[in-house]
Design a protein around this nucleic acid. Structure first.
Length: 577
DNA sequence: AAGCACCCCAACCGCTCGATC
DNA sequence: TGATCGAGCGGTTGGGGTGCT
C-alpha cells in the first residue's frame, strides 16, 4: 500500500455504506454500540485479523467478519481488502508486456468488465503456462486492471494513440464474423459475447489448487460453448500455415469499418493498401473528405460506416451507455483516443498531441450523420469497445445481405454525396464481388491477422507495437509504422515490398488492395480444398498444437487468443468436459 | 527548495443482481 | 410477488509519490 496507514485514522462510516444492519448492531466494543466503523487504509494488524478470519471461516459472509473478528470494518471493506490484497495467489507488481496485451485484448472484448477480465486473464495465464503449472497461477486484481486501463487510456489519449493494437481489432472482428457465420446474421448480440461473456469465467480457486495433481491434461475448462465446424475451420484458416492467405474479405466493409476505427501504428496488415499519400493529391483529399464527412449511410438500417467509429467511441464504449442516448459532455476514459484523430486526417501520420476531446464531441454532435447514427447505437450491453464497433460491422454486413437493405443503402445517397464520396466505391469498385458474408473465407482473412500475428512477447509495453517483421514474415506484407513514438519499418522490406502506412485511417482503402488479393480470391476452389483439409487432420493437429500450450506461450499473444477461442475444440478432442 | 502537475493506486461509493424469505 | 439482504461490480475519489519548472 502506498497510502500511509495511521492507526488513529478512524472515521464514521456512513450508515448507507454497509448494507447489513447487523454490523451496526454488533459493532460494540470501543465503537460504543454505534455504527462507528473504521475507514481508510488498512493496518497490518487489521490485515492479520482478516486473514485469520478467512482462514477460519472462509470467504464470504463478509458482514459477519466484524461480528466474529472484532474488526471495525464493514463487510464490504473486508471483502475488498481480501480480494485485492490479502487473497493468496494475487498477482503482485506491474503487468508484464504479455499481460498488458492480454488486458487490452480482453478489454476489447468485454469492455469495462474488470472482474471478468481478471478471471479470464487467470484462465489464459494458465493456458500460457502449462509447462509451469502452479507457477503462474496468480490472478489479476480487477481493481488493478481497472487502474491500469484508466491510466493507459489517459496516456494514450494524450499521445494521440489508439487504444487497441490492430491485432486486437482483427481478433475481435474475426470473432464477430465467426458469430455471424455460426449463429447467423442479425441475431442480436448473441455472438462472441457468448464466448466471452455468457459463459462463466468465474474460476473456482479449488480447481486450480489441484492443478499440479493433474498435469498433462487440461484441468480447468470453463463453461465453453460448442464450437461449430465452421468456426473451427476458420480457426484453422487462421493458423500460421495459412497465413500466406491475403486478407480476402467477403466482408471487407466490415473490416474497413474496423480499420477506420483503429488506425493505430501498425494497424492492419494487407498487401496493396495505400495511404492517401500515395494517391494524387486531389484524389487523396477527395477520399479523405468523403471518408470523414460524407460517408455512405443507410437510413433503413441506420448504419453509418465512418461515424460508427466515432460514435462507438463515444456512446458504445462497452455497451453500458444507452444505445439511444445522445452522447454529450465529457468523454469517458474508455474511449479510444483515435476518435479525434479521425477528425483530422491531415494530421494523422504525425499525430500531434491530442486535441481537446470536447472539440471532437462538438464535431461529432454537429455532424448530421453522427446524429442520425445515435438512434441506432444498439450495441450489446456489456460489450467492449470493439464489440460495439463490430456490432456496426455486423449491421453493415447484414444490410448487404438483404436486398431491402441494399435498396436502402442506395437510397441513402440522398444523405450526402455518397455516390461520390464513398471511399469504398472510389477505390474499390469490386467490393460487391466479394460479398459473401457467410463464407469462411472472410474469416480466414481476419483470423490471419488476429491469430497469426505474434507480437513481441518481451520488452515492450503495449503502448508500443509489434515489430512489422513478424507480420511480414507471416503474411508477406510489410507493415510500415511511423507514429510519433514508434518506427518499426524495416528498411530492407520497405524497398522490396509494398508499403502500407498503417498509421493512417485510410491505410486500407488503397486501390491496389483488391488487385493484390484478387489472385487469392479467384482461386476459391483451392480454398475449398483447404477447407476440406482443415476439417480433417489439420484441424486436429492444429488444436493439439494449441492444447500443448506451445502456441499460446511461444507464439505470442495472438495465438494466445487463438488458444482460448479454441478451447472448446481442445476439450472435445481431449475428452474433457 | 518550492510549487505545480501529473501519476499511481488503495479505498470508497453507489448501484445491480441473485438468493432467500 | 415483493421485500430484504448479501455479495459483487464498476466508477470515482483522494492522497502519496514523482518529475518538471
Amino acid at each position: 500500500m502506498k497510502r500511509k496507514t495511521t492507526e488513529s485514522e478512524d472515521e464514521v462510516l456512513p450508515k448507507d455504506q454497509c448494507e447489513s444492519p447487523s454490523i451496526t448492531e454488533s459493532s460494540g466494543g470501543s465503537a460504543g454500540g454505534g455504527a462507528v466503523l473504521k475507514k481508510g487504509p488498512w493496518t497490518s494488524a487489521e490485515d492479520a485479523i482478516l486473514v485469520e478470519y478467512v482462514k477460519k471461516h472462509g470467504e464470504g459472509n463478509w458482514n459477519a467478519v466484524q461480528k466474529h473478528s472484532g474488526l471495525f470494518r464493514c463487510g464490504k471493506s473486508c471483502r475488498l481488502r481480501w480480494a485485492n490484497h490479502l487473497r493468496p495467489n494475487l498477482k503482485k507488481g506491474t503487468f508484464t508486456a504479455e499481460e498488458e496485451r492480454l488486458i487490452i485484448e480482453l478489454h476489447a472484448k468485454m469492455g469495462n468488465k474488470w472482474a471478468r477480465m481478471a478471471a479470464h486473464s487467470f484462465c489464459l495465464s494458465y493456458l500460457d503456462d502449462l509447462d509451469d503449472l502452479g507457477v503462474n497461477m496468480n490472478r489479476f486484481k480487477d481493481n488493478e486492471i481497472k487502474n491500469y486501463w484508466n491510466t493507459r487510456i489517459k496516456r494514450r489519449q494524450r499521445a494521440g494513440l489508439p487504444l487497441y493494437p490492430p491485432e486486437v481489432c482483427f481478433q475481435a472482428l474475426q470473432e464477430s464474423q465467426h458469430d455471424q457465420d455460426t449463429v447467423g446474421v442479425n441475431v442480436g448480440d448473441g455472438g462472441h459475447h457468448n464466448l466471452l461473456q455468457t459463459n462463466s469465467y468465474e474460476i473456482p480457486d479449488v480447481i486450480f489448487e489441484s492443478l499440479k495433481a493433474n498435469q498433462g491434461v487440461l484441468p480447468y475448462i470453463p463453461e465453453l460453448p460448442d464450437i461449430s465446424a465452421s468456426s473451427m475451420l476458420l480457426k484453422g484458416l487462421g493458423s500460421p500455415q495459412y497465413c500466406t492467405l491475403p486478407p480476402i474479405l467477403p466482408q471487407q466493409k466490415c473490416l474497413q469499418a474496423s480499420f477506420e476505427l483503429f488506425p493505430s501504428p501498425g494497424a492492419g496488415v494487407g498487401n496493396g493498401f495505400s495511404s492517401f499519400e500515395q494517391f494524387p493529391d486531389d484524389t487523396g483529399d477527395k477520399v479523405a473528405q468523403s471518408f470523414g464527412l460524407s460517408y455512405p449511410f443507410d437510413p433503413a438500417t441506420k448504419n453509418s460506416r465512418s461515424f460508427a467509429v466515432i460514435q462507438g467511441g463515444h456512446s458504445l464504449p462497452n455497451g453500458n451507455s444507452s444505445a439511444s442516448k445522445p452522447t454529450s459532455g465529457a468523454v469517458k476514459l474508455e474511449l479510444p483516443s483515435l476518435q479525434y484523430a479521425e477528425t483530422d486526417f491531415g494530421s494523422w501520420v504525425a499525430s500531434p498531441p491530442s486535441p481537446l476531446l470536447e472539440s471532437v464531441d462538438a464535431f461529432i454532435q454537429s455532424s448530421p450523420v453522427a446524429v442520425t447514427f445515435e438512434a441506432d447505437c444498439s450495441s450489446p450491453r456489456n460489450s467492449g469497445l470493439l464489440d460495439a464497433l463490430l456490432h456496426e460491422a455486423k449491421n453493415l454486413s447484414s444490410a448487404k445481405n438483404h436486398p431491402s437493405d441494399k435498396s436502402s443503402n442506395s437510397s441513402s445517397a440522398t444523405h450526402g454525396d455518397i455516390a461520390d464520396s464513398s471511399a469504398f466505391n472510389i477505390y474499390n469498385p469490386e467490393w460487391g464481388e466479394y460479398g459473401d458474408p457467410i463464407s469462411p473465407f472472410g474469416h480466414s482473412a481476419t483470423s490471419i491477422f488476429s491469430e497469426c500475428t505474434p507480437l513481441s512477447a518481451s520488452g515492450s509495453s503495449l503502448d508500443e507495437q509489434p515489430p512489422p517483421e513478424t507480420l511480414t514474415a507471416m503474411t508477406g506484407f510489410t507493415v510500415k509504422s511511423e507514429p510519433v513514438d514508434q518506427v518499426w519499418t524495416s528498411e530492407r522490406e520497405k524497398e522490396t515490398t509494398p508499403r502500407l502506412d498503417l498509421t493512417r485511417p485510410d491505410a486500407l482503402l488503397g486501390a491496389d488492395w483488391p488487385e493484390q488479393s484478387s489472385g487469392y480470391i479467384k482461386d476459391q476452389s483451392a480454398m475449398s480444398e483447404a477447407i476440406a483439409t482443415l476439417l480433417g487432420d489439420d484441424l486436429a493437429s492444429d488444436y493439439k498444437h494449441v492444447a500443448s500450450g506451445t502456441s499460446a506461450s511461444s507464439q505470442g499473444w495472438g495465438l494466445n487468443c487463438c488458444a482460448w477461442n479454441n478451447m472448446p475444440a481442445v476439450c472435445q478432442m481431449s475428452g474433457l468436459p
